[in-house]
Design a protein around this nucleic acid. Sequence first.
DNA 1: CATGATTAGGTGCACGCGCACGCATTCACA
DNA 2: TGTGAATGCGTGCGCGTGCACCTAATCATG
Lengths: 346, 346
Amino acid sequence: MKTATVYDVAKRAGVSRGTVDRVIFNRGRVSQKTVEKVREAIRELNYSANPSASALASKQIHCFACLIPQHQKGEYWDVVDEGFKHGLEEITFCNVDLRMYYYDQNDIESYRKMAAEILELRPRGVITNAVFKEAVTEFSYKLKDLAIPMAFIDNKYDDLDFDIYCGVDPYNSGQLGAYLLTVHQKVESVAMIRVVRDSGKHADPNAPRRHGFVDYIADHFPDSAIYTLFIDPSSSESIASSMDRFASAHPEVRHYAVTNSRLFLIANWLKDNYDPERVVVGFDDLEGNLKAMREGLVDFLVTKDIPGQSNYLLTNFVRNVIYSQPPKVKNNYVHMDVLSKMNCNK
Amino acid sequence: MKTATVYDVAKRAGVSRGTVDRVIFNRGRVSQKTVEKVREAIRELNYSANPSASALASKQIHCFACLIPQHQKGEYWDVVDEGFKHGLEEITFCNVDLRMYYYDQNDIESYRKMAAEILELRPRGVITNAVFKEAVTEFSYKLKDLAIPMAFIDNKYDDLDFDIYCGVDPYNSGQLGAYLLTVHQKVESVAMIRVVRDSGKHADPNAPRRHGFVDYIADHFPDSAIYTLFIDPSSSESIASSMDRFASAHPEVRHYAVTNSRLFLIANWLKDNYDPERVVVGFDDLEGNLKAMREGLVDFLVTKDIPGQSNYLLTNFVRNVIYSQPPKVKNNYVHMDVLSKMNCNK
DNA sequence: CATGATTAGGTGCACGCGCACGCATTCACA
DNA sequence: TGTGAATGCGTGCGCGTGCACCTAATCATG
């Protein structure tokens, strides 16, 4: 079965190809009556542009902007970034130019500054994550004024307007971590390791995951103690001493969970203080975390396909925007994956 | 940066576009010297055809054939099939016609018959899985004679010629299943449930997985007994009675593994004879298996992205064949995934 | 050496679309 | 009523390929 072309639509509507083109792209210069005739013909013939021909003919470069946290090599957002790069390659034929912008997770003003730059760029679409409620909300409203669609990656604010989202259900991921930490066991006390942050400024993005974790433990082991332990990522000596202090204060604790993505920070301590009885669970398959797992220091990692997620989001978002179609699924909750020493090699 | 076109290649090689075209598609009618000049120019300019323009210009329909086991709705190969369908949609602009052929897993002659039909069709490429060593080998040789490339899905024969493979490492998956069955526990005896087959005719495709499972148990629990229990998929009453018989003969066994994909066959028995102390592990996220997991009858499922795997294989294979490029990675070992009650909802 | 077949290579067109340009007709306003 | 601007619509070209068709040179053969 042959698909309809602009020419078919034009013939059916009794106009020329140029007019059909103007209607499709809302370029104006068409009378209301004609617009409706053309729309009708498009609907009747179920016309949609041949993507190959579009890409070939259009010399226009579709500019998209992405605003995510700045990061070091190997960190969580670095892997997200890779996924975007990879997705970009998949849609080369769409002539997409993806501009990356990075903000400082501890500085809401840096987010605002980058957001302003993006607004000036007037891209066809924007991807960002949910961090500073206030700043993201402002940004979202301004984008809406300019009719620029927006997508959330990794986490989102449900009350804002966005086209598409891709990420895991963080509360559920916390529950899964707790399940794996305690499966087939009796548990009396659990240590939950957090990273100190300049937390006055913004909501901790890991909070929902932590809540899932805590709720699961409380539900299934109501008599168990949950200790929270803060470590400072900027100093490895301070990490070791924090861990030492905790371990000697609570020698009975065998179950450790790191609810953020940086389990690798305590890998050295786990190695230097190895205890075969200890159970350790972490999140996200960063290279450092995987290394710790291969060394037998970690029992389970809860993760997901991080680059796959950003890849998926980008390619779908771009397609939606370029061909002005609504997303098939707005909220894409990615599948959580469990890694153990037996399946942690890519 | 502009990508090179055929025209650029032609200019560089000092020939015309038509000659470049003949070289790329091996249409002959070009002297050896010129062929090399053109190849050289292609390499230097890192030329690859613009997929949009190719798709637009080519009216040719690329016919591919796929030969996999016949199946019922919801079974393993049904999910594989879905992945192919989905992949086909992603590459609509490539004008691919994928013809599906199905054989009877218990009848090597049915494989031969379908293979013969495919040979007559002369497709651009063939996808199949490794089942009947003899028949697949014959098929592979005949395809090679016709210069038709071949891809393996799910499992493979390493000594045959194929372009690309996609599947899990089955031995490793068996090990992972054993690990999850026994993690954090002392194990004295294990039941391994198999499906009776017309096993004289062909090698059991699940053998490597079973070996991985058995080896892991033997390595980590040398004193543990491993019992093998056969069930007959065609009769649910016989399944129940087999299970009953085994359970009363070996009441001490708490660890059950189903090493094929049909854990769902014993779901009813597990429910009717529920034992909170029992640990159950299975393979593959078929709908029936997931249902059993949601009902709390199964502790872990080892699986992978089944449709994703076939989708990936198809899209890459087609691209390789159409643009006559070698695959980036020939052996694609897909990541194994662990499902528990906490992450078994899509 | 004549003749036809074969080999090596070039050229033109169509694919479906985006977009720049061009040409009428109508409208606003002096 | 004349004139320039705005409106409504049609046409032609080019994007990079694939492929059918054409030409010139070479070769085999009697």
